[in-house]
């Protein structure tokens, strides 16, 4: 279903969808909104993209991480090697792009990873209270306020987990349906 207007418009709209969904997620604790609705809104943006450009294109554009990898030197620590790669990729793009010892790599973030990380986040958010010797999933709250987010606490993490999970589930289903 290739309509030109939608195809062009959705590329501009996707950031708006994402930011709006994050806004809905964050405001959810005090106003209508929350992780479930936020996740759905975010997913709908990508669904429209999939409808107009196809699932391959969507996953290439938004769910693929491209980076340059350096072969590790002998005796170099594992962590140091990864840190160098991270630093150079983020802040020294020119050097990385032209340097001959850097190799282009990419990996696709399958929606199943988003589902898994959402579930992981939601499950582990309840563990913090165990450390405070309270039952699993008792909310643990900080005493201060942050700008935008408000009072940070583990239920916010839980909501973020739900957000990611819903996003992942909808994306997964859409990608399969559209691929077939």
């Amino acid at each position: 279903m290739k309509t030109l207007i939608l195809a062009v418009a959705i590329r501009i709209f996707i950031p708006i969808f994402v930011f709006f969904s994050l806004y809905i997620l964050i405001r959810g604790h005090n106003h209508p909104g929350g992780g479930f609705i936020g996740g759905l809104i975010c997913a709908i943006g990508f669904i429209f993209h999939t409808m107009t450009h196809g699932p391959k294109e969507t996953s290439n554009t938004f769910f693929t991480v491209r980076y340059y990898r350096l072969t590790p030197e002998r005796g170099q620590g594992f962590l140091l090697h990864k840190l160098i790669i991270l630093y150079k990729n983020l802040f020294r793009k020119e050097e990385v792009r032209t340097g001959s010892e850097w190799h282009k790599r990419q990996f696709r973030i399958d929606p199943i990873f988003i589902i898994a990380s959402g579930l992981f986040l939601a499950t582990t958010s309840g563990v913090f209270s165990l450390l405070a010797n309270q039952p699993y999933m008792t909310g643990v709250w900080a005493d201060y306020y942050l700008p935008i987010i408000g009072k940070p606490g583990t239920p916010i993490l839980f909501d973020l987990g739900v957000y990611l999970l819903v996003l992942g589930v909808v994306l997964k289903i859409t990608f399969i349906m559209a691929e077939e």
Partner: peptide, 13 residues
């Protein structure tokens, strides 16, 4: 629950 949206507080807390 430190939230004014009761539905959401019930769901996540």
């Amino acid at each position: 629950g430190h939230g004014r949206n009761i539905v959401n507080v019930i769901l996540v807390d």
